[in-house]
Amino acid sequence: MTGFFAKLKEGLGKTRASLLGRMRHVLSRGGVIDAASLEELEELLIAADLGVHTVTRLIDGLRRRTEGGERFDAARLTAAMREMIGEILRAGEAPLEVDRERPFVIMVIGVNGVGKTTTIAKLAAHYRGEGKKVLLAAGDTFRAAAIEQLEVWGTRAQVDLVKHQAGADSSAVLFDALQAARARGVDLLIADTAGRLHTRVNLMEELKKNKRVLRKQMERAPHEVLLVLDATNGQNAVQQAEQFSRELGVTGLALTKLDGTAKGGVIVNIIERLRLPVRFVGVGEGLRDLQPFVAEEFLAALFEEE
């Protein structure tokens, strides 16, 4: 866990450096925040992809406090910001409990290119490491070579895979996979689905059918509808989450690609706006680079220095 924490911190390093550095710069001019420095602070948060809505709320909160006579120096401003963002992040902290039923079915969805297949591989490795028996379902029958990609990952993570041919009905794949999972006494079934844009009506219909087919065979399946979001995405990630939630009842989020530069903020925005729990964050390309989301760690990585 400590290795992962270091990685997360490293990943968010640039965000942290720019946020804290600039905050200090804001405050160095006079030491007390005024309207101009609030505006600058607003920009810093927007640059971290927190989104106009959330940033406005945070800044308004600070503004009211200064108007109420409160005076902020650098340390207190950081503390106040940390407290406010922490409050939002903690609301999104709810680890996934996969022991409720056997097999526990996770249906993984998301737009193209967010890293669904890689996330599935990491999930498989994660749970296999906990000694669970995992089965994968190659439900993305649409994209060229998606099945082969999952197959390679499955081999690396040493878990079995249920697949049909490319172009086959994805619901049939999922049906077979769930049947196999029950017959083989599997603990966890992770189903891949086709990644298409959330504005495609026919994709939503296909995903709904996928879900129905699972539910028909097992009352509470899928137990988790996990939406994968790309941290490099901006405000459109919020729209993706809204749209998929409305159509499919998303129960949790996984945020990938947090190992680039300056982009921790989108997670704050999504939790704030959609009240969805963040289950996992991905910070690298290795099989072990996906870990449960812990608000305090995320916050620490964002605000603390070495």
Binding site: I46, A47, A48, D49, V111, G113, D230, T232, N233, G234, Q235, N236, A237, Q240, G260, T261, A262, K263, V266
Partner: peptide, 12 residues
Amino acid sequence: VDAMTGQDAVNV
């Protein structure tokens, strides 16, 4: 570049 990219597009 993905059209959905956020503020980070500049760094990339």
